[in-house]
Amino acid sequence: MKIPKLEHGRGFRPISVFTRHKFAVAGLIVILSEIILVVLLPVIFKMDPIVSDLSSFGAKPGAGHLLGTDSIGRDLFARLVYGGRTSLFVGFMSTLFAVALGVPLGLLAGYYRRWVECAVMRLVEVFMSFPSMVLILVLVSVIGPSVWTVTVVIGFLGWTQFARLVFASVLTIREKEYVLSASAIGSSDAAIILKYIFPGAVNPVLIAGTFMTASSILLESSLSFLGMGVQPPASSWGSMLYDAQSIAVLSGKPWQWIPPGFMLILTVLCINFLGDGIRNMLEPKNKTNI
């Protein structure tokens, strides 16, 4: 067995650690191509996910409609691509929103301690003590379901994990002598936090962010499946599954639900592999080999 180089000497190459994890590489490729495809396909090919083809309802996959049509004649391939746009958008944006909310709060709580820590961490505990699915359902039905509502609500309920992660990192970093040296040269609090503390707390955020993207995509699908997510006629992978709920469709027209289900599983799996790879790359000590 080759002994892996762990110390951050000149020979340490995080990239090679990442590429050694084959599933992570595959995950990265799949996710990137998905993003490119859902952005580019509608631009290159004329496709419409809303207009019904009055000549074919519930058609099988074939020449005219690559993946067939649903029960009111909408092209399923177009809906799959546009649904991918929605699902990926919600996944990434809600994570971004959660990071933007949680990271600064965690930094402030960890750096200033005292009442800031008290306020932020108690707030985190309050948020975490709610069953999030129920809360999301309530919030969405109060505000009204839409892509943006779902994104913001998922992000708004997801910030706590980032605040806790960053808080924990800051607690260890602020005891390091280099933070003291930053104040010895006269850096302001903001400069100390941004230039000296934050870079040391980024890695766990990146890793947790990847995993949250996957779970947000799932959450959005669950919401859409419950009818609380994306509203028709717009599509997401979850809402396509919702449309295919009847027994007749489930048993007789599998092309209506297999593609969105498959894409959902593939995407979530790939993002999780990607997260594993990033974790191996950034935290060589917590290595989990697959």
Binding site: K176, E177, Y178, L180, S181, A182, K195, Y196, P199, G200
Partner: peptide, 8 residues
């Protein structure tokens, strides 16, 4: 070892 920020 701890007085220099490792990322700078």
């Amino acid at each position: 070892y701890s007085s220099l920020a490792p990322h700078m």
